[in-house]
């Protein structure tokens, strides 16, 4: 099963084994990672599942859609070049070892 590494704002790392097909948001919410809310349930409508992807891994991800791009402008924590919405990142075998940093707030 592919693994995803979540880095909390205090620097601690948490590794989750994520079934292929689940999103980085769904995996986090179902396993109690508090820094991701996913209020809209993964419909790309709320920007409360914002993460910072390790910059050297950005090109492993599918490109950002227009909806995601617009929503990120309203994310609670600063938008950076490596900002993504974790509901739009579906975990696959190719993404094994993905590292995402969690912002300190989503609202």
């Amino acid at each position: 099963m592919p693994s995803v590494i979540y880095i909390h704002p205090n620097g601690s790392r948490q590794t989750l084994d994520v079934p292929a097909g689940q999103s980085v948001m769904q995996a986090a919410v179902s396993r109690g990672i508090e820094e991701i809310l996913g209020e809209c349930g993964g419909n790309a409508m709320c920007a409360t599942c914002h993460v910072y992807v390790e910059p050297d891994q950005l090109d492993r991800l599918p490109p950002m859609g227009d909806d995601e791009d617009a929503l990120l402008d309203g994310a609670a924590a600063d938008r950076l070049p490596n900002s993504r919405l974790s509901c739009q990142i579906k975990v696959t075998g190719e993404l094994d070892g993905l590292v995402v940093r969690l912002p300190d707030r989503q609202v």
Binding site: M25, G41, G42, N43
Partner: peptide
């Protein structure tokens, strides 16, 4: 953890005023 409830619907018609 309420994420995924359908009180605002889900999919393309999910409540546009949810925020």
């Amino acid at each position: 953890k309420t994420s995924g409830h359908v009180g605002f619907g889900s999919g393309i018609h999910m409540c546009v005023g949810q925020l």
